[in-house]
Nucleic acid binder design. Structure first.
Lengths: 142, 142
DNA sequence: GTAATTGCCGTACCTATGTACGGAGTCAAG
DNA sequence: CTTGACTCCGTACATAGGTACGGCAATTAC
């Protein structure tokens, strides 16, 4: 079910679609769309007297924004923040991104430490003579 | 409250303590100890006719093992696995550690990709002329 | 016109790793 | 003997990000 209506300019078409179409074009679950509504990340279109709600393509775009931001490691709370910053000075957005970047760097240092430790364990293991006694278990024990 | 009792060797003392002491020496919450009991990671000492349960120092050591393994990024499920492998051939333990290692490496690649993307955003931002219009928000949008 | 999809809505459930709470029992100190 | 601290136990709550279900309404397909 498609509804078209004209903007006052008489030029721009705004297409509106049902929730399942929204979910489908984005490749996500209907429930996820509804979840974002509950979280206030997108606004729920008003329910018409008769029939189903229809969602403008703005909503689709907004969810795309959300999904891309998630890929960049932002949480939904941070994304809500980003969305509210739409017309705010660059500096605030930049700050958020920098904050995120330093968190990412920290996490990478963590993982490097971890990688080293795991490699250490495996080296011990490969030098092991005694088949029935694993040095990994040993070395993790106090 | 401390209870000492002798092992048959007549040499080794096994000290037993209350749950809050266990938590205290480990720097964790009492509830966490109880949570590990529920998860089957440690066994709950039987309750004496009168008074409180007392925990042997083995329990403390076991929890230390758990905590170290967690630091290495193992989940509680994996740790349960490790604990059950105590006297098993090295290969199984090694396999678990290798699996973990490759997960760590994957995660690092992810984070590097993310770091690059975030840096890209910040470069755009610093090249920005228009104070009121942030390219980060723009570039995340479709 | 009837059957099969969808939509709508509230609510419960999921994973992972704990934390918190309430009420009753127990213990140690003053 | 009373007070305060601790234990025990079951259950609920917390976070993050959804997913699932049940019952009823509306729409679409044939």
């Amino acid at each position: 079910m498609l509804v078209y209506y004209l903007r006052s300019s008489n030029k721009v078409l705004q297409m509106t679609i049902t929730i399942s179409k929204v979910a489908k074009v984005l490749g996500i679950n209907v429930e996820t769309v509804r979840f974002y509504e509950r979280r206030g990340l997108i606004t729920q279109p008003s329910k018409p007297e008769v029939g189903y709600r229809h969602y403008p393509s703005d909503t689709v775009n907004r969810i795309r924004f959300i999904k891309r931001s998630q890929e960049l490691g932002f949480t939904l709370d941070e994304i809500a923040n980003l969305l509210s910053l739409n017309d705010r000075p660059c500096s605030q957005v930049q700050e958020l991104a920098e904050h995120k970047l330093s968190a990412v760097k920290e996490k990478m240092v963590d993982l490097q430490r971890l990688e080293k430790a795991l490699n250490g364990l495996l080296v011990q293991c490969s030098n092991n003579e005694d088949e029935n006694h694993c040095p990994i278990i040993e070395s993790l024990q106090p």
